[in-house]
Design a binder for these strands. Structure first.
Lengths: 224, 224
DNA sequence: GCAAAAATATTAGTAATACTAATATTTTGT
DNA sequence: ACAAAATATTAGTATTACTAATATTTTTGC
């Protein structure tokens, strides 16, 4: 069971901690609903305020702009996947088994987390698939990196890279392969849903099992 | 040597063919400069008009909005990589050698093309690396797919998938692997430049040779 | 229970963005 | 040289992305 403070979002991403107040938690919760519904481009603080019965100005006291809010959600997701991996690989010694569990959590990090009731993880997963690339493909990325906003992603990737190195200490690209597995999980789902000629996998509803098979095939070929 | 009509951009992406007029070609040329300089979020038609000595309204007669223009550039790139692959694999029989050439063109599609003088391929490549995901991660993707705007990407991927199948007719994921190689090429360069802890490769200036090595390592592991 | 402080809401604004319409001027093709 | 096409100009609108000032409500410490 996660408690909110375990999530460990970096200072500075928000102007004040949204987890500490009702309004803050409402912003997180409703922004996930609204971004998923209208897409990040059409998402505005005015619309968000309206649909949660609040005021645009109030939201600006929590986040500088919608980009910061998106990055906050993406960082939340990275932390959450990290937590799931820690939880689900606890007491497991075999690094092969560990990487299998990691792959399953990369693809299917959608089991509801009962202690963070205001985050709909399934919708957040949809946002990650469709919008997360926008969180770092900006001119601000270098500055935001110096502010530590990508530490969660780096920590997640390093954790996976360490397991890869455990499996094969001579594998030359553990971090690249870890990043690639994570990004591929999201990309292949997006392509299967929208541009299916770009993949050989099929997804139906929330059944992403073919993506798990694909990633495990990669694991087998790359690491034996 | 390419002639412009070979590029074959889909109808409907632009309101009128920018290749047929000086203004149209100026839009392509200057938008590449400006998007690369300020990033897609900060890019506007007003700024573009100003920096090319034209008028905002005139630009709207060529493209509905900046998203269409970005997609046009991305489609251009897909076509151009396809062309390079055809050109460079002509008369080569060995599918292994073909895939090596494909990988080199995925990574390093930056050799200047003398017949399309108004397109700076190096800058276009930077845009692809930083902005191309935004061209399809939108709520419009399904509609734009029905309009045929992604045919170039599908054709490129199918071409590569066919080579993969030639190498190993039993390989179960030729399209996914082709897509993954292409996306990985761009992603790993971006990460090496901005979030280097996510990769094991290094890029210096326009030398992306370590990315070529990485992709060839994948090829070797996945296809033998 | 009350005052101070913190949080939230309201109102009112600005500059920039993302367009569209109407008309005038310039360029081009024959 | 003339008609047609392309481009430019001017002038607008609605929305976005904010900020400032002030008012109201809620929380908390004593």
């Amino acid at each position: 069971m996660v408690i909110i403070s375990d999530i460990g979002l970096p200072q500075g991403l928000s102007l004040r901690d949204p987890l500490q107040t009702k309004l803050g938690r409402d912003i997180i919760s409703n922004s996930i609903d609204l971004i998923e519904e209208v897409g990040f481009e059409q998402f505005t603080f005015k619309k968000l305020a309206k649909c949660m019965g609040s005021n645009e100005t109030s939201l600006y006291r929590y986040f500088e702009n919608k980009h910061s809010l998106l990055l906050y959600l993406v960082v939340w997701y990275w932390n959450w996947v990290s937590y799931l991996i820690d939880y689900n690989t606890k007491n497991i010694e075999d690094p092969h088994r560990k990487l299998d569990i990691i792959i399953e959590n990369f693809v299917d990090a959608t089991k509801e987390n009962p202690s963070v009731h205001f985050v709909n993880e399934t919708k957040l997963h949809h946002i990650i698939i469709s919008e997360s690339a926008k969180a770092y493909h900006t001119k601000k990325v270098d500055y935001e990196n110096t502010e530590g906003f990508f530490m969660s992603y780096k920590a997640l990737i390093q954790k996976v890279a360490d397991v890869i190195t455990e499996i094969n200490p001579r594998f030359p690209y553990p971090n690249s392969f870890a990043t690639n597995l994570f990004e591929m999980a999201n990309n292949q789902i997006f392509f299967a849903q929208h541009l299916p000629r770009l993949t050989n996998i099929k997804v139906q509803g929330e059944d992403f099992s073919e993506v798990v098979d694909l990633l495990k095939f990669y694991k087998h070929k790359m690491l034996g």
